[in-house]
């Protein structure tokens, strides 16, 4: 039973990572940039939900909606103001700008909400499900997180396969110049990608803080790094890869925590990542790109 509990907790944590990793992987696939500020968008989303429920006494669905809208607008603004002017610049310039944006968001949050951690009230007020006469306890947060992950996954898969915008996104990630020649508005497509990624970040932030209820300006950075690792783990640029990478990372982390060492769990997670990348340098589901001579 212990094993099963850990597995379920791992899937729960992994689902959060997967949702965050989706944002990283979509942006990477299309804009070919590492959006380091993504982790901080998560934090903003969580704070928005916190404020809406605590100060405005809004119902939970409305609070989540507000968080999503704010994060979407934020994502599009960040892209338009900071990343768009650098579309033709080197990848390092974009990386440093993303780091600048990340500092900016963290310090803005520090100014507005202070450095003292806030206790996030879970958005799922049901407690836990008890199975097998109390031997297996699954919190509703975990169930909701996993369900949300599945819904998002199916939704995104359908969206990128079926819709015109989704097709445009795939075309842009395949070949930006060719897509532009076919009449696709590349800038608009990239903006939409950022919007979707940021909205997902808001959901991830709310779910993350429901399970781990400490909210600080730096809350987003470590899950951000881990989710980014998950995206690379699964093969960056691949949406199913982000899902797989996120889930595996969550499971490995929980197992390492409960069976090996709590303190060394991060080292183990990153160690597994390194081994995977050495065996399969493009990640689990990544495409191998032929090298041109």
């Amino acid at each position: 039973m212990n094993l099963l509990t850990n597995l379920i907790n791992g899937i729960g944590l992994g689902s959060v990572y997967a949702i965050i990793a989706l944002g990283y992987t979509m942006v990477y696939g299309i804009a070919k940039m590492l959006n380091f500020a993504h982790g901080d968008v998560i934090m903003v989303g969580a704070y928005m939900c916190f404020c809406a429920t605590t100060y405005l006494n809004l119902p939970v669905p409305a609070a989540i909606l507000i968080a999503m809208v704010v994060c979407t607008v934020l994502g599009v603004l960040i892209e338009g103001l900071a990343y768009k002017p650098l579309r033709r610049a080197g990848s390092l310039a974009v990386l440093i700008t993303a780091i600048g944006v990340s500092y900016f968001l963290q310090n803005m949050a520090l100014l507005i909400w202070g450095s003292a951690p806030k206790t996030f009230t879970s958005v799922v007020p049901f407690g836990a499900v008890s199975l097998f006469g109390g031997e297996l306890i699954i919190s509703w947060e975990t169930i909701i997180t996993v369900l949300a992950n599945i819904v998002i996954m199916i939704g995104l898969a359908l969206f990128t396969k079926m819709s015109r915008t989704g097709k445009a996104m795939r075309a842009v990630s395949e070949d930006k110049d060719a897509a532009e020649l076919m009449g696709i508005n590349v800038n608009k497509t990239i903006s939409i990608t950022f919007a979707i990624g940021s909205a997902l970040a808001a959901i991830a932030g709310v779910l993350l803080c429901s399970s781990y209820p400490v909210l600080m300006p730096t809350t987003g950075s470590m899950p951000g790094i881990k989710a980014f690792t998950a995206a690379v783990f699964g093969g960056i640029g691949s949406i199913p890869g982000a899902m797989l990478g996120g889930l595996l990372l969550g499971i490995i982390e929980i197992f390492a925590k409960s069976y090996i060492s709590t303190q060394l769990s991060d080292a183990i997670v990153f160690g597994v990542l390194i081994v995977v990348l050495l065996v399969k340098p493009t990640g689990l589901l990544g495409k191998k790109i032929a090298e041109k001579v």
Binding site: L34, T229, V232, F270, G271, L273, P281, T282, G283
Partner: peptide, 10 residues
């Protein structure tokens, strides 16, 4: 980027 992420991991 893969090299970058592995150095980060290390």
């Amino acid at each position: 980027d893969y090299l970058a992420i592995v150095t980060l991991a290390f």
